[in-house]
Design a protein around this nucleic acid. Structure first.
Lengths: 338, 338
DNA sequence: AAATATCTTGCACATGGGTGCAAAAGCGAT
DNA sequence: ATCGCTTTTGCACCCATGTGCAAGATATTT
């Protein structure tokens, strides 16, 4: 057995130490670190030099006590089965960091207790809580005391009509209309819509849009199937069962997102022994990395996550209009699954 | 355009408000919230009642200023291409939360500046920084001033010999030996080892273990291929190229992890037109969800992430031995890719 | 050179709660 | 009722910084 790690390094320097080293008051040091503060450039240079010398960096927690801003943002995530979450988490955390915010990741998947997560966020003095998940619907937010304790509530990549909430998402209806157009243009006739959890009002409008669009174009109501989690494995099971049980099969499965689409493709090929897209075509939504793999080549709709994350920053800064929703538009990525 | 969200809720109650409401001093309130504090049970009940009444919850940031503990832990992640990260992030954040810690997610992927990430962590007063990534090698940590400012440095699912660091990981060598045994037992004869980035000393020992093991058993040195990122798409490209260029192909590709293995399987089937496992078998490492999909059915090694996360909590609490490494053992999941 | 305007800098007070000790209160025994 | 001990409670001081104002220093004007 090896020994313990060496003891901690010397105490971290405080603003007071810098003040002493630079021969000024601590308030002057604080100013030197603040842009647009009234300090003579000579003093600032002296202070910053001293600070660098003794390795001073301001304590962000202490700073957020005094100030009414913490530069901390909570990311509430409840849905780790969906690989799209990794993209969202990566992009949002990176963009926030690039602009000076840190991310408090709160996993609400286990207890699924949104309220507790929001309370924790407020106890950490976050400037905002970003909701990245499927269970943050308006009913939950209504009953969550925690929702009122957080300065800003932002639903990302999903839409919400809750009055306390701001949404950053693609225009789901418009996006799904594009998918529907594509499916119609390809001449498919017997669609099946595969939906995920339908969670109250803070949900996606993909299913209803597709159904409506299809009905308007053809006069038929497409079949639908719902699974309770955005999980490829679950989608595989359900589609396998569906294909085994029904006498005729659809010629296209339109999925609410890629997580479901990937499982559906596996089911079509490996469980039902059919081919994609010849027997059954498939469409997805999100353009997760796997959608582009040789194995899948899934036709899907790509959301402009980066752009959306930049908009998030603007909202946090108060630069953007505080509209309840801000709709972005993405791109249909046509691959060989249709 | 809709109007702005309603104004913020009333100011959050402070300990002082509770004290007033309960008719005691604020220190008594603090005690009521602390287990093992000397308060009469009558007083505690009165205080907690009053706190509940006015909706008081302690401010964690303020608390961490006075105390020498923040209950905040930084998660440094640099590698979002690998789906295994989602598993790790989920499990670690959930387990930490279950035990009272919050997670500060720091994405070091963009700038790849580990030092900056560690500095940020220290500015947020984290109790520990958990390193979940590939680029946190000893050389980097040696030159990172930030490494010294963080109370504890814990490398998760990877091993490090850096003196400031504690590792929580499976015994890589033992695990890869099991994989090697399996491959040998199945009678494969021309292995190719597909490795990821070889990052200094805080790396995995899978490649060297396999090579050595194979050599000892057969007297041959297996071929190897390296890719700079754990990315299925990259693995696909490299394996495609490799199979196209070489006259003979291996009969098994042993991959350093599943991210690489999945891409390799796609390449074997779709680029080279060969079959798995008949022409070429494949093994992975990590048991990501996709490894179990019908499409892949990848033989892989599953790490006991949950158990490792629980051990992490013990380390944070100071309950566990501070060994430099703590080795767990996982399970070989045999599927039909071998 | 004096008066005035402007820029710098210092300070009191605030943020929300932790620590350790001392004072106060409770309690049983004498 | 008094003494001594234990439990409970209050308090001074500390954590590291922000805000807004006033005092001090410098520059500009007359």
């Amino acid at each position: 057995m090896t020994q313990n790690p060496p003891p901690l390094s010397a105490e971290k320097a405080t603003i007071e130490d810098v003040a002493r080293a630079a021969g000024v008051s601590r308030w002057t040091v604080a100013r030197a670190f603040k842009t647009n503060a009234s300090v003579s450039s000579k003093t600032r240079a002296k202070v910053l030099g001293a600070a660098k010398e003794i390795g001073y960096l301001p304590d962000l927690q202490a700073a957020s006590l005094g100030a009414n801003q913490s530069n901390l943002v909570a990311l509430l995530v409840d849905d780790f089965k969906n690989p799209h979450k990794l993209l969202l988490i990566e992009q949002v955390s990176q963009t926030l960091r690039d602009h000076g915010w840190d991310s408090l990741l709160i996993n609400t998947g286990g207890a699924q207790d949104t309220n507790a997560a929001l309370l924790t966020a407020s106890q950490r003095r976050v400037d905002a809580a970003i909701l990245l998940g499927v269970h943050f619907n308006d009913a939950v937010l209504d009953t969550a005391v925690g929702a009122e304790r957080v300065k800003k509530l932002i639903v990302f990549a999903r839409s919400s009509k809750h009055p306390r909430t701001l949404s950053i998402c693609v225009d789901d209806a418009a996006a799904m209309a594009i998918v529907a157009d594509h499916v119609l243009a390809q001449g498919y006739q017997r669609p099946l819509f595969l939906a995920g959890p339908q969670t109250g009002s803070a949900h996606l409008h993909r299913q209803e849009t597709f159904v409506q669009q299809w009905f308007e174009a053809t006069g038929d109501a497409p079949h639908s199937l719902e699974v309770p989690v955005y999980d490829s494995a679950l989608s595989y099971t359900e589609i396998s069962k569906y294909l085994a049980e029904s006498k005729s099969y659809p010629d296209v499965i339109v999925c609410e997102n890629d997580a479901l689409a990937l499982g559906a493709m596996d089911a079509i090929r490996l469980s039902a022994g059919l081919s994609v897209p010849d027997d059954i075509a498939v469409t997805g939504f999100d353009d997760v990395p796997q959608a582009g793999f040789a194995q899948y080549q899934l036709t899907t709709y790509q959301q402009p996550i980066k752009e959306m994350a930049e908009h998030l920053v603007k909202l946090l800064r108060g630069e953007a209009q505080a509209k309840d929703r801000y709709d972005f538009s993405g791109t249909l990525i046509e691959r060989s699954s249709t």
